[in-house]
C-alpha cells in the first residue's frame, strides 16, 4: 500500500493507506485523531472543518494522496498550545456555547479561519460574515456562536 507523509498538529506522520482514502478517515480511523467529526461526508455540514496551512478545509473531501510532505494539517486538538487555550476556544467557554459539543470543533476551526480572513481584509466581522458560516448545529447554539466569535476576534 502506498505511503503518505504530512504534518498533523506540528508532528510529521506517515501512513500506509490507499491514495483515495479521504483525509478525515486517515485522521480518525488510522491516526486516532477524533476531534474532526463526521456529519455528512460530502462537504456540506462542516463538522470536520480543520486547517491546511492555516486555511479552513474539509478533510472529508480531500484524498490523502493530494497532500504534500510539508503540508501542515491542524485539527481542533492542535489549536491550543498545551493547556493555554486559543482565544476562540476561551470565548467558547466564556459564552458557554457548546451543548452536545459534536459540531463545536468544526465550528471553532471555521470561526478562527473566518476571523483571520476578515482581519486580512482589514475589516471588522459583520452579520453577513456570520450568516455565511455553513457549519450546522442541530442543538441550535448559533446565537452564542455569533457572540463568541465576536468576543474571540477581539482577542486574536
Amino acid at each position: 500500500m502506498p505511503e503518505h507523509t504530512f504534518r498533523v498538529n506540528g508532528e510529521q506522520v506517515t501512513v500506509n493507506v490507499a491514495d483515495d482514502v479521504r483525509l478525515l478517515w486517515v485522521l480518525r480511523d488510522v491516526l486516532g485523531i477524533t476531534g474532526p467529526k463526521y456529519g455528512c461526508g460530502i462537504n456540506v455540514c462542516k463538522a470536520c472543518t480543520s486547517h491546511l496551512n492555516g486555511r479552513a478545509v474539509n478533510p472529508c473531501a480531500i484524498p490523502v494522496g493530494r497532500l504534500q510532505p510539508s503540508d501542515e494539517v491542524t485539527t481542533i486538538e492542535g489549536l491550543a498550545t498545551g493547556e493555554d487555550l486559543h482565544p476562540m476556544q476561551q470565548a467558547w467557554l466564556d459564552h458557554d456555547v457548546a451543548q452536545c459539543g459534536y459540531c463545536q470543533p468544526g465550528q471553532i476551526m471555521a470561526a478562527v479561519a473566518l476571523v483571520e480572513q476578515v482581519a486580512a481584509e482589514g475589516r471588522a466581522i459583520t452579520d453577513e460574515d456570520l450568516d455565511g458560516i455553513r457549519n450546522i448545529c442541530r442543538c441550535g447554539t448559533y446565537f452564542r456562536i455569533r457572540e463568541a466569535i465576536r468576543a474571540g476576534a477581539g482577542n486574536m
Partner: peptide
C-alpha cells in the same frame, strides 16, 4: 453555571461513541 464538559468539547477531548478506541472494532 457553565457546562462541566465544556473544556473537553472545545478541545476535541470529549469522546462520542465513534471516538472510542475499542480493540479491533473496525468501521
Amino acid at each position: 453555571h457553565n457546562r462541566v464538559d465544556a473544556r473537553d468539547a472545545v478541545t476535541g477531548r470529549k469522546k462520542f461513541t465513534m471516538d472510542l478506541d475499542v480493540p479491533d472494532a473496525r468501521p
